[in-house]
Design a protein around this nucleic acid. Structure first.
Lengths: 198, 198
DNA sequence: TACCAGACTTGATTCAGGTCAAGGTGATGG
DNA sequence: CCATCACCTTGACCTGAATCAAGTCTGGTA
């Protein structure tokens, strides 16, 4: 199943018939308020599960971010699978647990961190998607999502995100090679900011 | 297992050996930043599971709220149980899914709602713990947690929570019989505010 | 090479909610 | 019956981030 850039494939509140696994590209998950305010609850990429947070109807909408490929599993089929392979059920629970722990961290971010701390946390999160690197060396990052999405993920406005990235640049903590391509010059400092210790 | 009021029984970051089920009383779950800022990620009461968001170490701390009784299940024992009763594993996953959906709503609250909307949402959440009632009739609520906890749950300060409850009172949306005992005079109006539609 | 549209940045100003600082309240114990 | 203490409310003021309003950059098109 292929989804074009910006195309929505899960409607918030719609009856939930399927699980999805992201096989390629990227996806954003979000919830909306009636007046259009949006909270992006997560980004998913290759290997991530989608739809664990769905009982009878989806608790979130989902949209491709620059084109994505997915594997769709109807709930009924999943049920048959879990009956034959009980370890799958265990795997799904593990996945849900991992996700829960991530969400708790994100709640702390949204409820208690300053804008600076949020952006720093976001940058460090992006790092953790990379293969391990020496934390004292510069790290090159790709930010495939537009500023609007970063803002809606961090509970900020795009102006604030932009301003803080500019401030980090001025402080020589990062360099901005292009809109999507950022280098962390002092990953450890950024990590310190992210944890609220400065 | 009995825990006295205010007593902490899960240390954030400690190695996770056990699951818990709340059998009586109430419990608050939270994460801390190094400087003491606190985000309460949830309240749990009779029947709720604790520790789903734990892989090798706990992602949160937990503390009794006015005395609580718990049932402790070592992970090893759980594993034996799930092997004998595969449906338990399914049950746990369902529980985790339910929790995930709740957390997404809470992320929207923390990232995108105003203080008024947050407090209104909190009041409506408390309602949903009650047995069904006519939404056009006044609803009596008990708020067993201190204002500090409400504030840390909503990502606000206690002053703001207090001010907004006072404002709701002045607007005749609620009446405050005592610190812990509140009556929603116009549940539907409060629900409207909670959803950000006013 | 110049034009255009959409996305991003930057600046000026405003405001919701935080901070600081008094009071009030009500449960407990002497 | 009063003192005490912990918690809550209220008021005055401040500030971090939002809002409003121009610019600026980039990549695609002709």
């Amino acid at each position: 199943m292929t989804v074009a850039d910006g195309r929505s494939f899960i409607e918030e509140g719609a009856p939930a018939h399927d699980f999805f696994v992201v096989t390629g590209g990227r996806v954003k998950l979000f919830t909306l308020l009636p007046d259009g305010r949006r909270q992006i609850t997560g980004f998913a990429e290759g290997g991530d599960f989608l739809g664990l947070a769905a009982s009878t109807s989806y608790a979130f909408g989902a949209e491709a971010l620059g084109g994505a490929t997915l594997c769709r599993f109807p709930h009924a089929g999943m049920q048959r699978l879990t009956e034959r392979f009980p370890s799958l059920e265990h795997r799904l629970r593990e996945e849900a647990s991992r996700e829960l722990a991530l969400m708790q961290a994100r709640m702390t971010l949204l409820g208690r961190k300053t804008a600076r701390e949020r952006v720093a946390t976001f940058l460090m999160e992006r790092c953790s998607h990379l293969e391990r690197t020496d934390p004292s060396q510069p790290i090159e990052l790709d930010l495939p999502m537009p500023r609007t999405d970063i803002a809606d993920y961090l509970g900020l406005t795009i102006e604030t995100v932009s301003r803080i990235l500019s401030a980090f640049k001025k402080e020589k903590l990062i360099s901005i090679r292009s809109i999507t391509h950022i280098t962390l010059l002092m990953p450890e400092r950024i990590s310190t900011i992210a944890e609220g210790m400065e």
